[in-house]
Structures are given as structure tokens and as C-alpha cells.
């Protein structure tokens, strides 16, 4: 297994917590974690990436217990793109080169030609080359998201954890980024676990979905198994209609407005 959480519980002192999470992600999978706000998706990502220590249970990445590993060793296997990363006015190229830090030797201070080549490869894949000299704080949200991906790819990880990679992006940028993620998953065999708010995009791109609710996994399986309107209505506490994408056959969710709910008398 590339990522394995066993009986993971815990969270923030006096605040939100996860309870009894069991999740196994095989090599080469593309898994989407969905659920309403405050259901524990980001907490799960933080626990899976060693940013937050679980109270009970264990987390293994590529067979290794992440709390028995040094952060430097973990960063060679796992790359994370946070929901709201701290940005500084450094150039996109410098930012992407930071992804090579886990590969530095003990007394290495400067990036090697090989490091620069990997950073260039990551920027080409994510199409960041054109604005590589611009500051991270001066590019658009879509360009920034691609730069964050490039930095993560420069780490040459086996597992990529993405926390809402498409938030703040318009539909065109969403498709561009998700296409890239699927290409990385298929062509490079990169295992991807991504938190998503957009259920339709998750259904379209992910092979498996994990539906979170109140700190627990409510349902897990293929998009067809998870996107059952009864389960979704219970979890999201709103009336929803689940249909099918006529081109791909994947389930899609439609919201039902207040007017329509009143007309039809539909209730959760």
C-alpha cells in the first residue's frame, strides 16, 4: 500500500477530531476525498502528511510508519500541496527549486545541474516555464496553483497529497489542472490523494471516492457507489439530484434551489 491509515483518531486540542479512520490507498490509485465543510478532510491530509500527530492509530506511507521516519526521508516519498500555502515574493523558478531540498546532501547548499533539470521538467509538465521569472505573489490564482504542483513534482514523490487543488480556479483552469493530475497518475504511475469540494469533478477524475462526515468515513468506493443521493443528502443536509454524465456515464450531482424545493415539497 502507498498510504495506509489504521484506526486513526485525534485532532486539535479542544477542537475538531477524526475518529477511527481506516483507509488504504494502493500504488497508482487516484483517490478523491469529499465531504462537507468541517467534515475532517484537511485534518486527514495533515495527519497523513505528519503535520498533525494522531492520538491513536498509525499512518504508513510506502510501508513506513511516518512517525518513525525523519521528515527528510518522508519528503522523498510524499509531496503535499496545501490548501492555503504561505507565499513569499520569490520567483516561480526559485519556488519550484525549493522542491529539491529533500534531495540535498547533508552539506549541500546549492542546487546541482540535475536539480535544475528536474525543476525545469516539473515546470514544463505544469506549463509554468513562461512565467518562471515572475514572483509567486504576482501571478494569477490558476498560475499559482500550477506552480505549487510544479514544486511538489520537483520533489519526485511517489505519493501526492493535494488539499483542494482546484479551489479558487475557474472551470477552464480546473479542467487543465485535473487533466494534468490524471496524466501524472496514468503516465508516471504517481499515486494521488486529493481533497475536493466539487463532487462532479471528483466523480469524473477519481477512481475511488472517500466521503467524510463528522470526522468519520461515511462511505468509500467507486463514484457510482459513493454518489448515492440518499447518502449525499444526509451528509450535506440539502436536497440533491444525482444524474449521469451522458458522455462519460459518471454520476453527477445537481443542487436543488429553495424555489424548486418548495414547489416539489422535497425535503432531506
Amino acid at each position: 500500500m502507498m498510504l495506509e491509515l489504521q484506526h486513526v483518531s485525534g485532532g486539535y486540542p479542544g477542537g475538531f477530531s477524526l475518529a477511527g479512520i481506516d483507509l488504504a490507498v494502493a500504488k497508482g490509485e487516484l483517490v478523491g476525498i469529499v465531504g462537507p465543510n468541517g467534515s475532517g478532510k484537511t485534518t486527514l491530509v495533515r495527519m497523513a502528511s505528519r503535520a498533525l500527530r494522531p492520538k491513536t492509530g498509525s499512518v504508513h506511507v510506502d510501508g513506513q510508519d511516518i512517525w518513525r521516519q525523519k521528515p527528510a526521508a518522508l519528503a522523498l516519498t510524499l509531496a503535499v500541496v496545501n490548501q492555503t500555502p504561505d507565499l513569499t515574493p520569490m520567483s516561480v523558478e526559485d519556488y519550484v527549486l525549493l522542491g529539491r531540498i529533500p534531495h540535498y546532501g547533508r552539506y549541500q547548499f546549492l542546487e546541482t545541474t540535475a536539480d535544475r533539470a528536474v525543476a525545469r521538467w516539473a515546470m514544463q509538465l505544469t506549463e509554468c516555464q513562461a512565467y518562471r521569472k515572475q514572483a509567486m505573489t504576482e501571478i494569477s490564482g490558476g498560475e499559482r496553483q500550477l506552480a505549487l504542483m510544479a514544486r511538489a513534482l520537483a520533489q519526485e514523490p511517489k505519493l501526492l497529497l493535494l488539499d483542494e487543488p482546484t479551489s479558487f480556479l475557474d472551470i477552464a483552469h480546473q479542467v487543465r489542472l485535473l487533466d494534468l493530475i490524471r496524466r501524472l497518475n496514468r503516465e508516471l504511475g504517481l499515486t494521488v490523494v486529493m481533497v475536493m469540494h466539487d463532487l462532479n469533478a471528483a466523480s469524473e477524475y477519481c477512481g475511488r471516492l472517500v466521503l467524510m462526515h463528522q470526522g468519520r468515513i461515511r462511505r468509500m468506493g467507486t463514484p457510482e457507489e459513493v454518489m448515492d443521493y440518499r447518502v449525499l443528502e444526509e451528509v450535506y443536509e440539502t436536497v440533491l439530484v444525482v444524474g449521469r454524465n451522458e458522455f462519460t456515464g459518471k454520476p453527477i450531482v445537481f443542487p436543488v434551489s429553495e424555489d424548486l424545493r418548495k414547489q416539489s415539497g422535497a425535503q432531506v
Partner: peptide, 12 residues
């Protein structure tokens, strides 16, 4: 500079 989580994920 990438924040504490960001640095941790780079192996720091």
C-alpha cells in the same frame, strides 16, 4: 518561508 507545514513537507 513556506510556513511550518510547508517546510515540514520539504523534509525540514
Amino acid at each position: 518561508a513556506l510556513g511550518e507545514d510547508g517546510a515540514l513537507h520539504l523534509g525540514v
